[in-house]
Design a protein around this nucleic acid. Structure first.
Lengths: 159, 159
DNA sequence: TATGGTGAGTTCGGATTTCCTACTCACCGG
DNA sequence: CCGGTGAGTAGGAAATCCGAACTCACCATA
């Protein structure tokens, strides 16, 4: 038989797995648009600025992965629209958290960031909290529990 | 003078901006490792499985962007370690949220996901909440407020 | 002083992807 | 018939990525 697999991708990790699916260029922007309700091919091309062929490839992948669905919104002329599945919608918090980081750290003056409103009536700002105690998460408050190989569990603080 | 810029990157958006910085292949995995405290070049190579030259490029970019710092941990033999800056640490919630999504949707049986412990004593599971009311965010509870061009504000629900 | 080992990269050519422009195909509207 | 729209394909140049090998500085030890 062939030789033993040489373990490329050293650390088994769901972050890596997730990025293998949605980490390619444009994929998360597609999700952004689709979550905003702009799921048609030409809208996507315009709003994202991606080449059409790459967009087509990404869409195929995201549909296969169960993150988007492609549904017709008109027969005769046959036209389609991409929409998020449940799994796709559950990725939205990632987008929201990333947007928040971008707003705080990358703010280009000239254009102000998009504002979201929450049902509670206030401007929506995402906060990542601990399910158990409800506190906002801080790096120092976490300890990683190695499931596999050699990990160091405590990270250093900023420099 | 040259002609008017043709507006590639159609939608001004901090998600796109953030991804332009940390959306390249391996960048977020570098951050993962560095947040775990594994900030040395060869550790990164091993744990991430990236080609060394690409890793070197990414590291340069992340340092320039103010997400990592490169600090010597030994003079004579001169050795370096990469560590997250404040801005880098503030990206950690994105990673945690993405990991949580991966754990729920991509779970390969064989290896169980890494478990984190919160200071509160319980297993840490991230939840994205609204800063104002504290509720867990759901897609239907958000409305986007167009700051610029033509947006649709409501997204469709899963299919 | 030769021999080997580590950490942190750089250099090389070849394999993959991406990008851009143009093209298709089906339909509709006037 | 003519032009326009939506949803892609096709083709080749340009940019990236990849793996393996190479460097350079510094121990360790024999």
């Amino acid at each position: 038989m062939g030789r033993m697999a040489v373990s490329k991708d050293p650390r088994p990790c769901s972050i890596a797995d997730a990025l293998a699916l949605v980490g390619e260029k444009y994929s998360l922007l597609v999700l952004r648009e689709v979550c905003l309700g702009n799921g048609r091919f030409d809208q996507l091309v315009r709003n994202i600025g991606a080449p059409r062929d790459i967009l087509a490839t990404r869409l195929k992948r995201l549909v296969e992965a169960g993150i988007l669905t492609k549904s017709p919104y008109s027969e005769r002329p046959r036209r389609f629209e991409y929409r998020p599945t449940r799994a796709g919608l559950e990725l939205e918090p990632v987008l929201l958290t990333l947007k928040e980081w971008g707003d705080r750290h990358l703010h280009r003056d000239g254009d102000l960031p998009m504002v979201m409103e929450h049902v509670c009536g206030h401007e929506f700002v995402p906060v990542v909290t601990c399910r158990a105690c409800g506190d906002e998460v801080r790096h120092e408050d976490l300890t990683a529990h190695p499931q596999a190989s050699g990990w160091t569990t405590t990270g250093p603080t900023a420099a």
